[in-house]
Simulated assay, not measured.
Amino acid sequence: MAGEIPDLHAQVRTGTGKGAARQARRDGLVPGIVFGGENDPLPINLPFNALLQKLKAGRFKSTLFNLKVDGHDDVRVICRDVQRDVVKDLPTHVDLMRLRRTTKINLFIHVEFEGEEKCPGLRKGGVLTVVRPEVELVVTAGDIPEQIVADISGMEIGDTLTISQIKLPEGAKPTIDRDFVIANISAPSGLRASDDEDEEEPTTEVIEQNVDTVEESEEE
């Protein structure tokens, strides 16, 4: 994991149940629970504004935090769930799981594409279709990558980029065993239309490019 592990400050929540949770929200706090490891579950409250800021920053569920609670030892945690108000879409409860640095966990990691300016397929008017903007990886809690990098600088029109062509961080591996598609470069619409006109018996089939259709084509 790049950089220093960020702190997440909280306080012990006195009382349990819906009444205590409602009071916490009235006080500008978000109730939560810390579970896992060898210790009992710990009810906590998180400052609403600080939590909202971290949520807006992104990758909250794929970030390892150093949880600091008064009267308790610091512990590394990762978010397993954020419950939100169905109307306002604001956080109402947070579930955090204790981790050791060596713990293996499954996380969705963002895919960052680079090399667009050099990509011959794009320079010829091709279109980059991203099938998987995130990839689920098994990673070590102490080394969670912020992203994985997909280099498309050498791709031509018609080329497909699969997970085996991406260098993964040391110790990380996909949760899916087969070599699945990350992205591809298709011909520009004008060229596809021209090719259709040249055919003696033109037929048109529209297929939505998504994970399910790509996986079906791989299995055939």
Results as ranks from 00 to 15, higher is better:
residue 59 R to Y: 02
residue 173 K to R: 14
residue 118 K to R: 03
residue 210 N to Y: 00
residue 132 R to M: 01
residue 128 L to M: 09
residue 157 I to V: 15
residue 211 V to H: 10
residue 45 N to D: 10
residue 142 G to V: 07
residue 36 G to D: 07
residue 32 G to L: 01
residue 168 L to V: 08
residue 141 A to T: 11
residue 96 L to N: 03
residue 209 Q to D: 15
residue 7 D to P: 08
residue 18 K to E: 05
residue 166 I to F: 08
residue 94 V to W: 09
residue 111 V to F: 04
residue 194 S to F: 09
residue 166 I to A: 03
residue 148 I to G: 00
residue 163 I to F: 01
residue 51 L to G: 06
residue 131 V to N: 12
residue 108 F to A: 13
residue 86 V to E: 11
residue 203 T to P: 11
residue 43 P to A: 14
residue 143 D to V: 10
residue 170 E to G: 01
residue 67 L to H: 01
residue 163 I to L: 09
residue 72 H to C: 07
residue 129 T to W: 00
residue 40 D to N: 12
residue 128 L to S: 07
residue 8 L to N: 05
residue 166 I to R: 12
residue 178 R to K: 13
residue 145 P to S: 03
residue 50 A to P: 02
residue 191 L to I: 08
residue 4 E to Q: 13
residue 190 G to Y: 07
residue 98 R to T: 06
residue 179 D to R: 06
residue 122 L to M: 06
residue 156 E to S: 04
residue 134 E to F: 14
residue 143 D to E: 14
residue 80 R to C: 06
residue 98 R to F: 07
residue 94 V to Q: 01
residue 188 P to W: 04
residue 115 G to L: 15
residue 122 L to T: 01
residue 150 A to H: 13
residue 92 T to L: 06
residue 179 D to P: 02
residue 53 Q to T: 09
residue 199 E to L: 14
residue 151 D to W: 03
residue 190 G to I: 06
residue 220 E to W: 13
residue 74 D to T: 14
residue 100 R to Y: 10
residue 94 V to R: 13
residue 93 H to P: 02
residue 49 N to T: 06
residue 206 V to L: 13
residue 56 K to Q: 03
residue 154 G to D: 11
residue 90 L to Y: 02
residue 213 T to G: 04
residue 192 R to V: 08
residue 71 G to V: 05
residue 155 M to K: 08
residue 46 L to C: 03
residue 101 R to Q: 09
residue 214 V to D: 13
residue 175 T to D: 03
residue 200 E to H: 04
residue 13 R to C: 10
residue 208 E to Q: 12
residue 121 G to D: 05
residue 69 V to N: 09
residue 207 I to L: 14
residue 178 R to F: 14
residue 110 H to D: 09
residue 52 L to C: 15
residue 111 V to K: 12
residue 41 P to Y: 01
residue 132 R to Q: 12
residue 2 A to N: 15
residue 34 V to Q: 06
residue 159 D to K: 11
residue 57 A to N: 07
residue 81 D to L: 03
residue 118 K to P: 03
residue 212 D to T: 11
residue 138 V to D: 09
